[in-house]
């Protein structure tokens, strides 16, 4: 019993000491951009996972961080140029690795959301029918197989691009596109039932893709990146990240997303 208390105490002290050592440099204000995307962030309600993560991260950092809303493609441009410090729920690829650092906090799988009336049951079915169009968000990358599908259809001029999820759901329901690539948090709060009824989901056979805090390498030195990364790790370690996800998902799904 004593031993357990002792351990808990040393972990607490250790964490405290670590946290103090890792406090980011707050000598300048920072910028963080959100993008309107399903449960990650909804401008209509000014709520979402990313907003909650941002609030908690900013609170822990003790820094002044200005939060704004931008299209995802613009966020990547500004991260690359160093004009923007942070964004959230980003995934990486070889290109992004060059200009962005990440602090992972959840991982999930990608799915092809496809209209029931297309009779598509496998990924290959969708690719085969030349009439089917796929909707994607400009600037988005997905898991490997999904990216491959997007690139192939793009070559065949079968991809419709959009600046956000809303027009994709609208065009899907209007049958202007027949499929789109989604993540679990992509269902809109409105119309969710109607969309679920009219569609089926097909899982991409890729491992879950980690998502995290995006940090501009140009704006933040390596040492600073480490400090912000340890803040995110702290949120995961003490369960606050899981609590944020449990606000939006069933506990089991939240658990599989944040424990990876």
């Amino acid at each position: 019993m004593m031993l357990r208390y002792f351990l808990a105490l040393s972990v607490a002290i250790g964490t405290l000491g670590f946290a103090n050592a890792a406090a980011p440099d707050c000598s300048r204000p920072y910028t963080l951009a959100l993008h309107d995307h399903g449960l990650l962030y909804s401008a209509d309600t000014d709520t979402g996972i990313d907003k909650d993560v941002a609030v908690e991260l900013i609170r822990r950092s003790g820094c002044k961080v200005t939060v704004s809303l931008m299209p995802r493609a613009r966020i990547w441009q500004l991260i690359e140029s160093g004009a923007l410090d942070f964004s959230l729920s980003g995934i990486t690829d070889a290109e992004r690795d060059k200009y962005a650092a990440f602090a992972w906090y959840f991982s999930d799988k990608y799915y092809l959301l496809v209209r029931k009336d297309t009779a598509v049951r496998h990924l290959a079915d969708f690719e085969r029918n030349e009439k089917f169009r796929l909707g994607v968000i400009r600037g988005f990358r997905y898991s490997e197989t999904a990216n491959h599908l997007v690139d192939k259809l793009q070559e065949a001029n079968r991809v419709s691009k959009a600046g956000g999820l809303d027009p994709l759901y609208q065009t899907l329901m209007l049958n202007l596109i027949q499929g789109m690539i989604i993540e679990p948090f992509d269902y809109p709060t409105l119309e969710e039932k109607r969309i679920r009824e009219a569609t089926v989901i097909i899982e991409f056979a890729d491992p879950p893709v980690p998502h995290g805090l995006i940090m501009s390498k140009k704006a933040l030195a390596q040492a600073e990146q480490e400090k912000w990364r340890s803040l995110v790790d702290g949120m995961r370690a003490d369960g606050s990240m899981r609590r944020i996800f449990e606000k939006y998902f069933k506990p089991e799904l939240a658990a599989t997303m944040v424990d990876f």
């Binding site: 299209p71 691009k161 959009a162 600046g163 027009p167």
Partner: peptide
């Protein structure tokens, strides 16, 4: 020869 529709989301509103 080519055409494309893109959906812009500008100030919370969609334009094609």
């Amino acid at each position: 020869a080519m055409n494309a529709n893109e959906y812009l989301v500008v100030a919370g509103h969609t334009w094609t």
